[in-house]
Amino acid sequence: MSTPPAPVPLPTDLTTLANVRAWLNAPTIDNSDAMLQRLLSAASVFAQTWMNRNIPIADYTERYTGTGSDTLALANYPIQSVASVTIRDWTVQPSPDGIRSGYVYDDRFLYLIGLPGPALGPFNGAPNVFPKFPPRAIGITYTAGYETVPPDIEQAVLELIALKWSDRSHFGQSSKSVGGEVVSYITADMPRGVATLLGNYKKVIPV
């Protein structure tokens, strides 16, 4: 009898198989690792889709249309580092001190500072802004996300997994009679408490 391959975690996973087993209080379920890992990965993707953002730290290379201001919100956050910024293929250097010309950033936004018109290179328009034209003329390479998944997000995913794991025995049922009593099941996409935990991280402003 061949041994099934070990389940493979994905970079998008928001918890671990060991933590799932501990939460389910089921460290010895036979031949369930592959199913639990699949459920773990699916719940992680569902949570991040609902939050409209990625959580684990990753590298991104993206193009943006400018805002016409000195501020640009990046799609993924918290921003950990910025490797390069280009505007219409002209490279913007990081500001050496947060005062002199260049770009700076915080955990959410990229800023242009101290760039008079000529310093922005060979293009027209207002100085010191991310230009709106042409579209997608701004290129950003950066690293963003959490090195460690926040505990409340991980807890929300564990509760989602536990709900779906228990739902295997009554899939599609909203209630059933047990010993003369009616037992009701949760049929929503996720419990209200899970939505509350994830809602703290939901990106509500499109970028």
Rank of each mutant, 00 (worst) to 15 (best):
A6H: 08
P9S: 10
L10Y: 08
L10D: 08
P11D: 00
D13I: 00
V20G: 12
V20K: 09
A22Y: 05
L24D: 06
L24G: 08
A26I: 05
A26H: 07
T28Q: 04
S32E: 14
D33H: 12
D33W: 09
A34W: 05
Q37F: 01
L39S: 12
L40N: 07
V45A: 08
A47T: 06
N52K: 13
P56L: 10
D59N: 14
Y60N: 07
Y64D: 04
Y64H: 12
G68H: 01
T71Q: 13
N76H: 15
Q80K: 15
S81Q: 08
A83Y: 09
T86K: 11
W90A: 11
T91P: 03
P96I: 10
G102Y: 03
G102L: 03
L115W: 04
P127H: 02
P127G: 01
K132C: 05
P135I: 12
P135L: 14
I138T: 05
I138G: 04
E147Q: 11
E159Q: 09
E159S: 09
K164L: 07
W165P: 00
S174M: 02
K176D: 02
K176E: 15
V178L: 07
G179Y: 08
G179W: 03
G180Y: 07
E181W: 08
V182I: 15
S184W: 09
T187A: 09
V194L: 04
T196F: 13
T196A: 13
T196G: 01
G199E: 13
P206H: 04
